[in-house]
Write a protein that binds this DNA or RNA. Structure first.
Lengths: 327, 327
DNA sequence: TCAAAAGTGTTATCCTTACACCCATGT
DNA sequence: ACATGGGTGTAAGGATAACACTTTTGA
């Protein structure tokens, strides 16, 4: 239990840096330096000699490399699976990565973003089945569910260590047969697809698919290493956190209309919200205050502008947006 | 963004192994191998060569070192702050630790526990202010709140990076002035006490206290390194998880009475629950089924015995115990 | 005058919380 | 019989989810 010899390992800090623009949640991606094809999340080394904590280290390399001004930062998870992040240039030294979620305002980084702008990609490119704003995504009914069903059947009673059977897990994750769709299960869904060998990353890692290789259409855009897994974790965490902490405002400009706010929440959670209930929620939580100005940008009646009441954090214990049913 | 040189670091897996016995939540502690005084959590090295994932590595050294059979395992957080875990034998190599929560049944480990039993300590020894089962703990009114108030006053407008002022944070964390006590804020409370220099670990790390050194009474038993912080994280996570996942049953014997179950939940969350409401909750969630037997152990009317319905996980999406108000 | 979006009032329903009372056993 | 804990019915209040309608602008 005490001073056993420990193996030296490299530690990387991988960041899912999120911004919302034009009703689209976007993630900062770094182009593949080698092949130029697959996207990856930006990451930097953790050097304990220069930085006292992970968070300081992260803020430092983000500032240095991207000139982006991140506000909210939160640790997600530490990923260390061998075989799920195989670096092509692997030197034999094992590497683990501490995943972080960071939020930034598009308006904050006017100049910096102008250059880096190409780096912010809509995150639903990587998870097309997660965007239910225009109804149930077609990709679910077309390739995904049938493929999963085949996978579920093919492995009926093979894996006792798993607490749940394949088809039960499929039903839970993807909201089939009574189970409702739970927008927070982003990671569970991705992991299931990975296990079933249906995402490119799984095949790259040498996992067998249940259907002949060539026949699987790409399920979302793949990423390098295990970065799509980290992004799934980030989306899941952000979707959950919205409901009990006022983190949306980290993504909003200083002034916004209530519809702007609703659209942003909808963009992140991937579903529509009930207008009146959303407004009542925001109002009763006293999260915002009117600036007095109005915006005539959208075409119809001018909308009142609001700003985030920074002092709510001092008053109410959990001032999130409990966003209820769909609309 | 790419292949910067990374500093090699040692990675340890630190486990908060929890069991409940005699209505007392207990944590497995390892005695200090050096001084024999301060308790610490058990930990083992992570060796990527022998273990494919953190969890496998963890299960392995726990099995090897303690002969304890852990069921549920969950990653908590990765701790890497320099200066908050200074090992006396520091070799210059930096070390980070990945904290894990593990649950085990006392009844599972009959033989193994007989030997290791001394290692399971009631966790409220380390957090006496977290146990509200016999009403508001005296330690809050006596040394804690006055000390915190002094700290809050002494640092009025000094630290702009912090989003909240000292007294606001104090009020939120400790439920003073309108804010209710939130049993999930275990980590926040510990961190506040640490920041205020009121726990031994803070002084050990060289943090100034707001009151003369000698005058601060010990606030709970201290632990080695940052292990008390990891334990606080574990308790917070477990208290939160109880409410939306049926994890209590990982701590229960195969058969139990509803009162046993309630006492276990109360022990973990540190407060009393309303009997009828608790029962209705358990019943409507269909979490348990009667075995048909009764137990006459407690003195009054014999209680019906129940067992966990393992198949609920297949049916309901979030079968936790939403444990409502106090009683 | 019409389209487009902003903004409001009200009701049915469920869930949460709390009350108070009855039941079965051992001494 | 009485103490001890097991076990239940029911009503008040609040939060949630859904209903439909009015208002203000630009074209």
């Amino acid at each position: 239990m005490a001073d056993t010899h420990l193996t030296p390992i490299e530690v990387g800090l991988t960041a899912a840096i999120v911004a919302v623009e034009a009703e689209e949640p976007r993630i900062l991606v770094a182009a593949d330096p080698k092949s130029g094809t697959r996207a990856g999340l930006p990451f930097g080394p953790f050097d304990p000699l220069s930085h006292r904590t992970f968070e300081i280290g992260l803020r430092n390399w983000v500032a240095a490399q991207t000139a982006i001004n991140v506000g909210y930062v939160e640790q997600l998870y530490t990923f260390g699976d061998r075989g799920r992040h195989a670096r092509p240039d692997d030197t034999g030294m094992h590497m683990i990565s501490v995943g972080y979620l960071a939020l930034t305002r598009m308006s904050d980084n006017a100049a910096a973003l102008r250059e880096a702008h190409a780096g912010f990609e809509p995150w639903y490119r990587f998870f097309p089945w997660e965007d239910w704003r225009d109804g149930r995504p077609g990709i679910l009914d077309q390739p995904i569910v049938p493929l999963l069903e085949r996978w579920a059947k093919s492995g009926k009673s093979s894996e006792p260590p798993r607490p749940l059977g394949r088809s039960e897990r499929m039903r839970h994750c993807f909201g089939i047969g009574g189970s409702p769709w739970d927008e927070e299960k982003v990671l569970d869904r991705y992991e299931l697809l990975y296990e079933a060998g249906l995402v490119e990353e799984a095949r790259r890692d040498g996992r067998e698919a249940t259907v002949p290789r060539g026949k699987i259409p790409p399920l979302g855009e793949a990423m390098r290493f295990d970065h799509r897994r980290i992004l799934a974790t980030a989306i899941a965490r952000l979707r959950a956190k919205l409901k009990y902490r006022p983190v949306v405002f980290e993504l909003m400009p200083d002034e916004f209309t209530l519809t702007d706010l609703q659209r942003t929440v909808e963009a992140i959670s991937g579903r529509h919200l009930h207008k009146q209930n959303f407004r009542r929620l925001v109002e009763t939580a006293a999260l915002v205050e009117p600036t007095g100005e109005t915006s005539t940008a959208t075409g119809g009646r001018p909308a009142a502008l609001f700003r985030f009441r920074r002092d709510v954090v001092q008053e109410r214990p959990a001032p999130g947006l409990r966003l209820g049913g769909r609309s």
